[in-house]
Simulated assay, not measured.
Amino acid sequence: MKKIPTLEFIKNMIAGKLPKDVTTNMRYPTAISKTLKMKIVNVEKGIATIEIDADSEVHGNQQGTIHGGLLCELADAAIGTAHSTIINDDETFTSLELKINFFRPVWKDTLKAFATPIQSGKTITVYNCEIKNTQQKVVALATSTVMTLRGDKAVGR
């Protein structure tokens, strides 16, 4: 198997042009993305957009709207994908913090999470992630602090 950079791997995956004999240091698509049927629709260096067809019949809470945990996972997936495009092959990362504000309920809609860095340092990067509905209204806004791991800290993750 030929190993290629994560950004190149994801771009090829989105375009449907991913050769069978290539891999990357990250696991894409992720297991949770496959389970929840989320898909990466755009990626650039440090930036990612992830989409989900959210339906309260599948992703609902006790009030009958989309569960906030699904919105957290959508934001976390977008932020993690964005960060995976800026680290080196021998590095990995972990979330230190995730905060989310919910602005409007959703019952059934295609939601997109747009993750972009606010501050990018050598070890710590802070991301902003807007989750919008098909009317381009913000459903939720998340911020997350991500730490890049190197050397022994990156082994086995």
Results as ranks from 00 to 15, higher is better:
74 L>K: 05
65 T>A: 15
100 I>F: 14
46 G>A: 04
93 F>C: 02
83 H>V: 02
76 D>Q: 08
43 V>N: 04
94 T>W: 11
38 M>W: 10
52 I>Y: 05
88 N>P: 04
59 H>E: 06
79 I>T: 03
85 T>H: 03
98 L>R: 06
87 I>E: 02
44 E>Y: 03
37 K>A: 09
92 T>A: 09
70 L>Y: 07
96 L>W: 11
82 A>I: 12
59 H>Y: 08
96 L>Y: 08
89 D>V: 09
39 K>T: 14
41 V>K: 00
88 N>G: 08
43 V>W: 06
35 T>V: 05
74 L>I: 11
31 A>K: 15
97 E>V: 14
66 I>R: 02
89 D>R: 05
70 L>T: 13
77 A>Q: 09
75 A>C: 12
59 H>G: 12
77 A>H: 01
100 I>D: 10
56 S>G: 02
46 G>K: 02
41 V>P: 01
34 K>C: 11
54 A>Y: 04
78 A>M: 01
66 I>N: 06
57 E>W: 02
70 L>P: 05
61 N>G: 04
35 T>Y: 14
51 E>K: 02
54 A>P: 10
33 S>L: 01
79 I>H: 03
86 I>C: 04
99 K>A: 14
67 H>Q: 12
39 K>R: 11
53 D>N: 14
62 Q>C: 08
61 N>Y: 13
56 S>I: 00
65 T>G: 13
67 H>M: 09
36 L>G: 10
99 K>L: 06
44 E>A: 11
80 G>T: 04
69 G>N: 10
69 G>P: 12
41 V>D: 01
99 K>Y: 09
58 V>A: 07
50 I>Q: 00
98 L>M: 11
49 T>A: 07
55 D>Q: 05
86 I>M: 09
85 T>D: 05
44 E>L: 06
63 Q>Y: 15
40 I>T: 13
91 E>Q: 12
55 D>G: 03
86 I>W: 01
93 F>V: 02
52 I>R: 07
74 L>M: 07
50 I>T: 12
73 E>I: 15
98 L>T: 09
71 L>E: 09
56 S>K: 02
52 I>W: 02
82 A>D: 00
50 I>S: 01
81 T>R: 00
52 I>V: 15
60 G>A: 10
43 V>P: 05
92 T>F: 15
70 L>E: 05
43 V>G: 07
73 E>G: 14
93 F>A: 00
57 E>G: 03
68 G>P: 14
79 I>V: 12
55 D>R: 01
72 C>S: 13
49 T>L: 06
98 L>K: 03
33 S>Y: 00
73 E>C: 15
99 K>G: 14
43 V>E: 08
47 I>F: 06
69 G>H: 12
83 H>K: 04
50 I>C: 06
59 H>P: 15
74 L>R: 11
71 L>Y: 10
42 N>C: 00
56 S>N: 04
58 V>H: 09
92 T>G: 11
39 K>Y: 05
85 T>G: 00
63 Q>E: 15
46 G>I: 08
86 I>P: 01
62 Q>P: 06
85 T>F: 07
72 C>L: 13
38 M>I: 03
81 T>V: 09
98 L>G: 08
48 A>T: 02
77 A>F: 01
62 Q>D: 06
96 L>Q: 12
34 K>E: 14
95 S>Y: 13
82 A>K: 00
82 A>W: 03
70 L>K: 10
63 Q>N: 15
49 T>Q: 10
58 V>L: 13
99 K>T: 10
37 K>M: 06
